[in-house]
Design a protein around this nucleic acid. Structure first.
Lengths: 257, 257
DNA sequence: CGGGGGGTAATTGTCGACAATGTGCAATAA
DNA sequence: TTATTGCACATTGTCGACAATTACCCCCCG
């Protein structure tokens, strides 16, 4: 068999050597397929995932499928209950509140590091991402706008230089994507969104941690406040007591002075 | 076959009904065995874990062993490289720095929530844990002192009421345990350790978030500063440039005024 | 004496089959 | 009619075997 095989053919020519090192296992590919379907909405929240069905459909055995489901469960995209199987994690407001709170906490930590060590090169890379997102927004391509948005935030987190933070954030990202459609209204007002990101970058560039934190909070909570859940009877009402309290209080406390 | 079986017999008599609901799979038990060995030191950092060896030793097939290794890898206790197997995560100073930084970030977030919503009952529970730890320390039982110490911190995190935070912290806990022996000098001066915890609880009771945060930082960084790595040539020298910078700066910035 | 090739052994990745468990329906009795 | 019990089916958990890949060692060549 030729060195790179199918994997190599999918990449650039000069990646032929590196390809065998990073080719992915069947389990990884199955996980990728299922992950896509979940965040895409093809696999609706709450629906069952039967190992044998997936294995038959994808033409693999149950072992990699099972392994993939374990991965998805770790990412919070699926829930596995022993001897009963896996379901796509249902969308619940309470969980979205927790997700948002925790996301803010992680990104704050990242900003804390980043406002200390950000160099010109990193900032340029971030600015390029904002530009890309702006283009996607103007082109009306919501899907890639979402991708660019999240990629920007992930890049900020990655620049903090803490591998554990990065892993934790990656785990969150999948779930953020899962909930993105309830905040999709946000991507209508593209100018606003781009400006918020630019304000965030400016604060980072100025190495002004308090301001960066304030901008971040406003940015994320802004998206949060527009979230609409189907379980809501009628209009997008207020979030539940306790959680509202937590997010609300912090939003107020950390709002720019 | 009798209802509960072996699982029920290991519990109290009135747990017979509930037992079947919470019995654990083979994979979970294998993971528990390996996890214990890793944090205990029986399985040294860097040593290989061969699936077939474990499966033969524990009298199970490779499937649950494999599943257990995936879990351990998720927890950061093991590293899996495709077609080459799993090794116990090696102890590296850089990683310990990241671990400590991230741990502080998570616990700060917990304190932020806790100083808002802590009730008397919760505080009593925490105080009971400090007392338990103090007893263990005085009894010279270092192992259970460590357990109580971590259990206290975990309880604080749990009280924050964010499931995602809790999961992320649990993932960290295993790794903290992995590194605990490099900070074991800390458990010599038991009085000091107990006092720091009590100061933390007092700040929480007073709902004084800034003070709680300052006490927490001092507490964790205190343990950090005593860490000794074998790779160090001679005395426990300073931590590497970049990481030292990050931790040092924050320690200074957030120190009590 | 050192470095490259080839072949063997060891180990992981995947597979199909069987055992254990949960689910739902149907038959039965009150 | 309705609650209950038993049974058949669907699905997960575990197992042993085979395929794919890597590590190791020996041999050969320079």
């Amino acid at each position: 068999m030729v060195c790179g095989g199918a994997a190599a053919r999918e990449r650039g020519p000069d990646a032929v050597i590196a390809a065998p090192l990073e080719r992915e296992s069947t389990a990884t590919r199955v996980a990728a397929v299922l992950r896509d379907r979940i965040v895409e909405g093809t696999l609706a929240p709450g629906s069952r995932i039967v190992e044998l069905e997936v294995s038959r459909e994808l033409g693999v055995s149950r072992s990699p499928v099972r392994e993939a489901l374990l991965k998805l469960a770790e990412e919070g995209l699926a829930a596995i209950v022993p001897y009963r199987g896996a379901i796509v994690s249902p969308l619940r407001r309470e969980r979205f509140v927790e997700l948002t709170e925790f996301r803010i906490a992680l990104e704050r930590f990242a900003l804390d590091r980043l406002t200390e060590r950000a160099d010109a090169g990193s900032l340029d890379a971030l600015r390029a991402r904002v530009a890309a997102m702006r283009r996607a927004l103007h082109a009306g391509n919501r899907r890639s706008a979402v991708d660019e948005d999240l990629a920007l935030h992930r890049a900020i987190v990655a620049m903090a230089g803490n591998a554990l933070l990065e892993r934790a954030y990656d785990g969150l990202l999948a779930q953020i994507r899962l909930y993105i459609h309830v905040t999709s209204a946000r991507y209508q007002r593209s100018e606003e969104l781009a400006e918020e990101h630019e304000a965030l970058l400016a604060a980072i560039a100025a190495r002004d941690f308090p301001r960066a934190r304030a901008v971040l909070d406003a940015h994320i909570l802004h998206g949060f406040s527009e979230a609409v859940f189907e379980e809501d009877s009628g209009a997008p009402g207020p979030v539940p007591e306790t959680s509202q309290t937590a997010i609300g209080k912090n939003a107020r406390r950390y709002r720019p002075v």
